[in-house]
Simulated scan of single mutants.
Amino acid sequence: MQIAERTEWNLLATPLVAFLLLCLGFPAVVNLVYSVSDISFATLRSPTLSGFGNFAAVLSDGAFWRANWFSLRFGLLTAALECALGLFLAIFLAPLFKERSWPLAILMLPLMVAPALVGLMYRLVLHEFAGPVPHYLWQWFGNSPAFLGPNSAFWTLIVVETLQWTPFAFLLFHMAYHAIPDEVREAASIDGANAWQRLFRVELPLMLPTIAVALLIRFIDGFRVFDNVYVLTGSGAGGSTASLSIYIYEAFFKQGAIGKAVAASVLLFLASFAILYGLNMLARRKKK
């Protein structure tokens, strides 16, 4: 019976494995070759192996480490803010959504807009000379911060990203909160727990897996951010708002340093794989 089940499993998994090898395996091999080659747009079909010079160039580039630091801060802060706000809204608005579900559609609207369009919209709204927000701040208070300037651009990007993707975290937490059986809450109330005790000792512990997944997803998405940041501020003054994705894009298309760009992407892939593998091992140990 076990042999039959294993054969059936292999047959069912073969199309998926073949698809992954075709769509991901071949590009991964090409990237590995390019990362250790001296290559340009003219020699894409015939790269010349040159060793690990591209990796050395990336690791010795200060812009690469600044981009990593930006992406790390951006990913951590946006993930924390989005999940905190989403969790608050899911719990605070739970009685409303229990009676009426249509406001959910309004809260989900930011998710329907492409990030690049969101970046373009805020670029127009916050523009120092043409934007309505700086105009009215000058008119009412006689002063306006440079929202897209080097000193404020990072926090402007944090706010824009948080406003767009908080509904995603809210939706996950809303579903997790309403999935908690009413019998559990009633049992806690019978045992004498008040609303705060039910929240911190019953509801939040049951929602912890969803909170962890939401934090991980939003961190990954924030770390690899490209479109809305690139449209809103580009790489910023002196590369102050260059994420790792923007660094790779500019190295590839603006500098023509294909080997350097691919080497940076390989390093990003290896770091992501190590982090995900470590989290997977940690989850397995907790299960045991």
Rank of each mutant, 00 (worst) to 15 (best):
F55I: 11
M108V: 00
A146N: 04
P115C: 12
L172F: 05
A195M: 01
A13C: 11
E161F: 01
S189F: 05
V33Y: 06
S272V: 12
S243N: 09
L44S: 11
V33W: 09
P150W: 10
Y247L: 04
V231F: 04
L111K: 13
V30Q: 03
G256Q: 10
S101W: 10
S235L: 11
A79K: 10
L148T: 05
K98F: 09
N143H: 07
A153E: 09
L267I: 11
R45I: 02
Y247W: 02
P205D: 01
A13F: 09
L59V: 10
T210Q: 13
I246G: 14
T78M: 04
H135K: 07
T210D: 11
R6H: 00
E203C: 00
F173C: 10
L157P: 09
F88A: 15
L270Q: 05
K287W: 02
T7W: 03
F26H: 05
S71T: 01
W9M: 05
V229N: 15
A237T: 01
F226S: 08
G149R: 13
A169Q: 04
S37N: 07
S46H: 14
V159R: 05
L199T: 02
F273K: 00
L204W: 00
A283G: 13
L268R: 02
R284G: 10
L49Q: 01
L206F: 05
S272D: 14
L270P: 06
E82C: 07
L77Y: 10
L49C: 03
L104H: 14
F269Y: 10
I220M: 04
L171A: 03
G53S: 03
A263P: 02
L148Y: 06
L12F: 15
S240Y: 07
V17L: 15
K254W: 02
V266K: 00
R185P: 03
Q139H: 12
T156K: 06
G119F: 08
L16S: 11
H127C: 03
L120Y: 15
L157S: 08
A212M: 12
D38E: 14
Q2D: 02
A251W: 08
P150E: 13
